[in-house]
Computed example of a mutant assay.
Amino acid sequence: MMRSLWTAASGMTGQQFNIDTIANNLSNVNTTGFKKNRIDFEDLLYQTSRIAGTPATELTTVPVGVQVGHGTRVAATQKLHTQGALQATDNVSDLAIQGEGFFRVLLIDGTYGYTRDGSFKIDSQGQFVNSNGYRLMPDLTLPEGFVRDSVSISQDGRVTTKVAGSDDPIEVGQLELYRFVNPAGLQAVGENLYKVSNASGDAIGSRPGFDGMGKTIHKFLEMSNVSVVKEMVNMIVAQRAYELNSKAIQTSDSMLGIANNLKR
């Protein structure tokens, strides 16, 4: 059987995975804080018929060998943590990070999740929570009787507000951001959340604007970093690559058919 059948089939399988990734990127083009995925491919093992450097005569060696590859496979899917565009919302509980860092939220199982999605809400207890009710950490609770429109968050994470009956703002909390040595190694778990993994390293916390952290931008949200134009171009390239691999299978089948029809 011709090895090209299986080699081309591996290419088609890889491009199917590529299209799946592109589709996920495009489906999240309006997801707050979403970071696009990129696929890295690698070639498979090689069958060596002649090794480079093999002696040809007593005085000469073969300059190049004879090898044939067996196709491709997906080596990694990498999150690209580039900055997304900032969009003004005029909502007092919205936050964006300009630069490096993640917000930390407390999950239902007691572990921490990390996110770039700053579309927080203020619950009935005056606490900042995300869309699924996970509390922002360190815990940030506004005082009873706070004036909603007076809530202000500075670029270094200081949270101030006014209380009914008083004209003087009071400081009620300090935000912290968290960064990682290898953010691409974080485990995406859905709900716009990431979890720490052995590849990402431990979370490093600090105030916004200090120790390499980004700044917090109040009443803004960070949008997805997906470029629709680039993804559409990637989709066209993946489609053509899929077609070319299918043509290789058809050609191999045709050659097998010719060989099968040989007569003495």
Rank of each mutant, 00 (worst) to 15 (best):
I108A: 13
L262R: 13
T72G: 07
V172Q: 02
A52C: 03
R104S: 03
G69N: 06
G118L: 05
Q239L: 10
L262M: 15
F180G: 04
Q239V: 15
T77W: 11
Y194W: 10
M223C: 11
N25K: 04
G126Q: 03
V172A: 01
V233A: 02
N37I: 14
T141E: 05
Q78L: 14
L136S: 04
T141H: 07
N37K: 13
A9E: 00
S124E: 08
K36H: 14
A9H: 03
I170E: 12
L107K: 03
A238L: 04
A199K: 12
G212W: 09
T82P: 10
R240F: 02
T31Y: 09
S131T: 11
L175G: 00
I19E: 09
G201S: 02
R50H: 08
G214V: 10
A76H: 05
A56G: 13
R158P: 09
A56K: 13
G11S: 04
Q127V: 07
M12R: 05
G53I: 11
I108F: 11
E100F: 07
I51G: 02
K162F: 06
V68G: 06
T251G: 10
P138T: 01
K36A: 09
S246W: 09
G53W: 11
A241V: 00
A9R: 00
Q98R: 07
V163R: 03
D167T: 09
D253N: 05
K215H: 12
I97H: 02
R50P: 14
D20G: 04
H81L: 15
Q78D: 14
R3D: 10
S27K: 04
T13Q: 07
S252T: 14
Y242E: 00
S131A: 11
N245K: 08
V233Q: 11
D109C: 02
L256E: 06
S246F: 10
A199E: 13
V196W: 12
T48S: 09
N198R: 14
D202A: 14
I204G: 04
G257M: 01
T251A: 10
G257D: 05
V29L: 13
Q47G: 02
N37H: 12
V163W: 08
G133N: 03
S119P: 09
F220M: 14
I153R: 11
N260V: 08
L175R: 01
K162L: 13
V105E: 02
L142V: 07
H81S: 08
L5S: 02
M232D: 07
I39M: 13
S124D: 08
A188V: 08
A184G: 05
A76P: 11
M213Q: 09
I22K: 06
G145R: 05
N28S: 04
V233K: 01
V159N: 10
K195M: 10
P138G: 00
K35Q: 03
I108Q: 14
Q87K: 14
K230T: 14
